[in-house]
Design a protein around this nucleic acid. Structure first.
Lengths: 235, 235
DNA sequence: AGGAATTTGTGCGTATGTATC
DNA sequence: AGATACATACGCACAAATTCC
């Protein structure tokens, strides 16, 4: 049946469904047709479709309810991942905004060079605020293979929105390391702490579903104003 | 066939397999019989067994290799939630051990008093090490409603094993807040840093499935020796 | 090196159970 | 109570990866 060395059909199906949902062709909350009808329309067996649906559900884009139906959830996997890792004000919460200082195409630093196929990467420098209060200084590296040029104006406050919609980059896994370190030499004057001052730092590495390294970042934050929070489980 | 409202067969199978592996009846690295043979012996269809095996694999206790076999992985029962949040040595990893300093039944501190129905709680003080290197000082509060008395000897290195097996306490969600703070006045002499010295801290609150607060803890760690790591997604 | 045997992966179709409406 | 829809389970055929001769 299957032609030589194509991706498994259930994978093709789940990716097609994910594209449909991500592109907005399927509204949030919409109910999919019954599995049998859907399988007939797509020309696959019900079991195959069910495996694909299970895949989409695992990525957080679908709710499957026995006896009821399959419901689209417009909550991209990236958000569900990143929602658990974030900086908040000491009192909790805070509306996040960001000011991009610069975007450059440079040779990757040592820590990131081993990852990815290219020797150059895009470096994004940002100042981050919560409720207008400056709380962090951030250096982000993206693999240059993603795009030739990235302009400052391309970047919105939500980098992950940019990754997903502009670069087609879907983050599947993330690892953060948190510690204490001195602020770097290049700390801009705009930041209220000066180079050398002790600050909390977050070192983040993230990967795509195919385990390709996608992003490397280092964030220095003022621990007197913000805390790093990670949540797990049904909050 | 199936009696009213029994667990699905594939769940029963996967739990049985997990028990077998956890109990040590199946050696680490051992290869299971071919799926067809196994299914015949167990009196189930191959597809049903495969679903159970996929379940065990998802829990990290089995490696499935096409064309080769299913191999047991003796992963010391690490609670899947806590595996994501942990302290590691700067170079990565480290075997965790702990020394319990004291266990007391006391009135809860302000931060914890609001949570839970009782006004008293158990306070556990621990020193934590990685590969024998002292890296953290920990204060843990449990709701006193769980048990009248907790003895030092009751506590193993893995508190979560103790929670689950001795208290019947199953943690469903966790929230960690990480920042920088001075070590408390009661820092014991055994700790290599002295009271007042700056250290990283982790404030953890955890809840049961019914959203009852279960645990509150504060951990001071030496950021020159260890980092806090959180992972998300398929690592 | 190469080919056959073994073993897991994919896919299909169907019957029955169970939750929802 | 009946209809609808997803969940479980079975058995079979073939593909793909590994192992062994």
């Amino acid at each position: 049946m299957a032609r030589t060395s194509a991706l498994p059909k259930f994978i093709q199906l789940s990716e097609m469904l994910i594209r449909e949902i991500a592109a907005g062709h399927l509204a949030d909350g919409a109910r999919l047709p019954p599995e049998r009808d859907m399988a007939d329309d797509l020309g696959v067996a019900v079991g195959t479709l069910r495996k694909a649906l299970a895949d989409v559900e695992a990525k957080g884009l679908l709710d499957r309810v026995q006896g009821s139906g399959n419901y689209v959830r417009h909550r991209p996997a990236v958000d569900s991942v990143y929602a658990f890792f974030r900086l908040e004000l000491l009192k909790g919460g805070g509306l996040p905004t960001a000011e991009v200082l610069s975007v450059d195409r440079l040779a990757k630093p040592d820590g990131f060079a081993r990852l990815g196929g290219h020797d150059k990467g895009h470096r994004i420098m940002r100042l981050r605020s919560l409720d207008g209060v400056l709380i962090a200084l951030e250096e982000i590296w993206l693999d240059a293979g993603q795009r030739e040029q990235v302009a400052v104006s391309d970047l919105s406050d939500s980098l992950y929105h940019f990754y997903r919609h502009e670069l087609g980059l879907v983050i599947a896994s993330v690892e953060d390391r948190i510690g204490i370190d001195a602020l770097p030499e290049w700390t801009p004057d705009a930041f209220h702490l000066k180079a050398g001052a002790a600050a909390g730092y977050i070192e983040r590495v993230s990967w795509t579903a195919t385990k390709e390294p996608a992003e490397f970042s280092r964030t220095w934050y003022d621990a007197t104003r913000a805390t790093y929070i990670s949540r797990m489980g049904k909050g």
